[in-house]
Design a protein around this nucleic acid. Sequence first.
DNA 1: GTCTATACCGCGATAGAC
DNA 2: GTCTATCGCGGTATAGAC
Lengths: 204, 204
Amino acid sequence: MKKTKSPDRELSAEKAKAILDGAMREFLAHGYAATSMDKVAAAAGVSKATVYSHFQDKEGLFTALIQQLAQKKSVFNLQNIQSLEGEPSIVLRRFATGMLENVMTDPQILTLIRLIIGESGRFPELAQSFVRNIEKPTIEALSQYLASHPKLRLPDPEVASRTFIGALVHYIILQEMLHGEDILPLERDRLINSLVDLILGRSD
Amino acid sequence: MKKTKSPDRELSAEKAKAILDGAMREFLAHGYAATSMDKVAAAAGVSKATVYSHFQDKEGLFTALIQQLAQKKSVFNLQNIQSLEGEPSIVLRRFATGMLENVMTDPQILTLIRLIIGESGRFPELAQSFVRNIEKPTIEALSQYLASHPKLRLPDPEVASRTFIGALVHYIILQEMLHGEDILPLERDRLINSLVDLILGRSD
DNA sequence: GTCTATACCGCGATAGAC
DNA sequence: GTCTATCGCGGTATAGAC
C-alpha cells in the first residue's frame, strides 16, 4: 500500500524538489538580490504562482534552500570527522587533504560559502546555522581528538584546532574564493606538510 | 596661483566625492545588486544624471568605490606591518591585537570584506586587488620577519605566517561576520596567547 | 555640468480560471 | 494545485532644457 503510483499525489512533492533545484541554480549563480522569482520558476519548469504556493516568499525560498544545501555539502566532509582515529600526523594530514579535496572537487561549495558570507549581514540566522551545524561540530571534534593525545602537549587544544582549520579555510578563501592562486602561490602539499608539522610541534 | 577659490571649477570634484560617499553608504548597507542608482544619487544629494556623468555605469561606480575603500581601511592596519621589530612574542601579540582591535573599532571593515567575498564571483578583479594590495604585503612582511629570526627554528616561515594570519581571519569570520560569538565562544586574549605560543613553539 | 522628465523593462506578489 | 494574466512599483540609463 502507498507503493501504488499515484502521480497526482506525488506531483506536489516533485514540484517542490524541482523548485528547490531551480532556485539552487539561480541563487548560486547570481546571488540573492540579483535572482528573480521569474528565473527560478523558469529554471524549475513551473509557473511563478506554483513557486509561491510552495514557499511563502523569496526570503522563505532562499533560507529553505541554503539550510538544505549547507547540510548536504559542508566544506569539511562530515563523515571524516568521525574517523578521527590513529596517529596524529596521519589523521591531521588526512583531515586537511579531505577538506581541500572536497572543495576542489565540488566548486558549488565555494559558491555556497560565498553566498552565506555575503548575505550574513542580511540573513544572520543563516550564518549562525552554518556555524552551529558545520563549523562547531568540526572544531569540537578535532579539538577533542587533539586533547585526547596528551603526548602532543598542546596547552590549548581548542585554539590548536581552530588554528589548524583556520589556516585551511584562509588558504581556500585566498587561493580559490578570491582568485589569488597566481598572486600568492602556495602548493597544497607544502601547506599541509608544514602546517601539520607546525601544529604537532615538529617533534612527534 | 590656482589657489584662488574657483567654486565652479571645484564643483565637479566635490560632487564626485559626494557621490562616492553616498555610494559607500548604500553599497555597504545593501550590497551591490540591492543598491539602486536612485538611492545613491539621493544619498549623495545630486541627480541621477550627475552620477552617470561621473561614472560610466553601476559597475564602474562600484569597482571605483571598493578599490578606494580597500586601500583606506584594510583589515590589517598597514602601518603596523612596518613596525615588525623586536621580540617575537611581543611583536606577534601586538600584530594580532592590532588586527582584532582594528576590526572591532570599525565595523565597516567587516561589511567591506563581506562585500568583497560575496561579490568575488562576479567581480574577480576586485577580489584579486584585495589579495594583491592587502593580504599579500601583510603575509610577506610577517613571513620575512619570522624568517629573519633563526632562533625560532621555523622550517617554513611563510606557512607559519599564513597560519598565524589565517587563525585570526577565521576567528573574525566566525565570531563577528557569521555572528557565532554565542555559539562558539572564545575570548580574544585566550586566542592571542595560545596562538602566539603555538606558533613560537612555546619554547622562546 | 547639472538638472527634470521619461523611455523601457523587469521585479515580487496575487487574482481568478480550470 | 497549477496555470495565465496582470497590478503597481522601482530598476538602469538617457534625452534635452538650462
